[in-house]
Design a protein around this nucleic acid. Sequence first.
RNA 1: GUCCCCAUCGUCUAGGUUGGUCUAGGACACCAGGUUUUCAUCCUGGUAACAGGGGUUCAAAUCCCCUUGGGGACGCCA
Length: 426
Amino acid sequence: MSDIRVRFAPSPTGNLHIGGVRTALFNYLYARQQGGKFLLRIEDTDRQRSTPEFEQEILGSLKWLGLDWDEELVHQSARLERYREVAQELVSKGLAYEFEGAIKFKIPKTEVKVYDIIRGEVTYDSKEFDDLVIMKSDGYPVFHLAVVVDDHDMGITHIVRGEDHLPNTPRHILLYQALGWKSPKYAHLPLIFGADGTPLSKRHGAVAVSEYRNKGFLPQGLINYLALLGWNPGTPQEIFSLPELVKQFSLKRVIKSNAQFNPEKLFWVNGQHMRAMPGEDYEREITAFWKDKLPAMPEEKWRKIIALYRPRIQIYGELKEQTDYFFTEPEYADAAMTGEIRQNAVSMGLLRQLLETLGSLGDFEDVQVLDQKTKQVVETAGLKSKDLIHPLRYILTGRSATPGIFELMSLLGKETCLKRLAAFLS
RNA sequence: GUCCCCAUCGUCUAGGUUGGUCUAGGACACCAGGUUUUCAUCCUGGUAACAGGGGUUCAAAUCCCCUUGGGGACGCCA
């Protein structure tokens, strides 16, 4: 146990996005690793844009990610009196003054040093700063005042936030000094950008955590990938569970330069987690994900399908598009392939023969038997099994790449297979 | 414009504090090969980077300066 206390302070004016998660994650990792507290504060002083829905969305996303917080949630909207009190205190000390109904903090002209854990010492000259509005004319505090008062009152020892806040820090330090409070330590994280180098936004595709969740990403996949954006353990390890990250994380190893968000690597990391998780977890989760979104089928069949596709998908959401032939008839969209098979008299002959052979089978339960019977047909004709398997795969699934064809035939069932084969040959 | 931060393969990064062991390592992506009925998984190999210029030094990716480039902040938003 240590007395380290950090916080994540989102404002409920939008969904929790990738950048926010990364900030929350690094705070979480630092707190958990140091045996400190990870607190959550809702910065809802923008009355126009803050909504309870966004707040719920943010909390829900954090829970889904497994970034559980300590103690009670703090809402800035519940602390208005406190901010007014502090603002008045500054006014009465002559350190702030009223201006057009608002209150401005009189910036002392001095050199301000920020000691940043990641960047080292950064010096500002406050004569570059204008006096700072700390209370709006509507009686609500401005971010700068609320942050300082809350961080002080909540006993925050380390502020870990995005680098976009670095220029705010000297102003905050001045406020701490004016109030006679001890300033926390700071760590400013590098920012995350889209592939084109501009700040991450809707243009770059999904930015909200909920979108990733809806697409069937794993929380541990997203967390793992985001941890690697701006931090690395200094070892070749790339795949981490949350507890492993907690164990290995260090603010000292956070990178200084901004990073680009790379969806491809996120997919890869997610796929690694999907393959590494216990089979029963995979089964349970992907089943829950697709429940009510796909037509029902016998449990045993479903279990075999998802097992077959585990190495072939990187997110749960990919399953449907890959397995469409289980739910709808093949469309044979590849005209070249379709023509090639139809015009090849030899393979058409083989396929007819196969249709007959398979028709004489009792059912398609036994994959071995399907394999043997099919190969017999080809071998009798003196050809290679792939000469028949490739056209067969295409006819049964409309695809040229699928899991093992005999397993698929067994899952598709005798009736469907013979029907598709007969339809194609007629 | 002013102030601040940053700068190694296309991307994420190791190495930089203690300059030599770096003809710069790993991962994603890409290419080639292997395994497989195809695909995927998996395995092997390959292409690919120290932004530029000065300086310090016997020696610089590593230290210093300048330039360039990128980013951030300059709101009664947070």
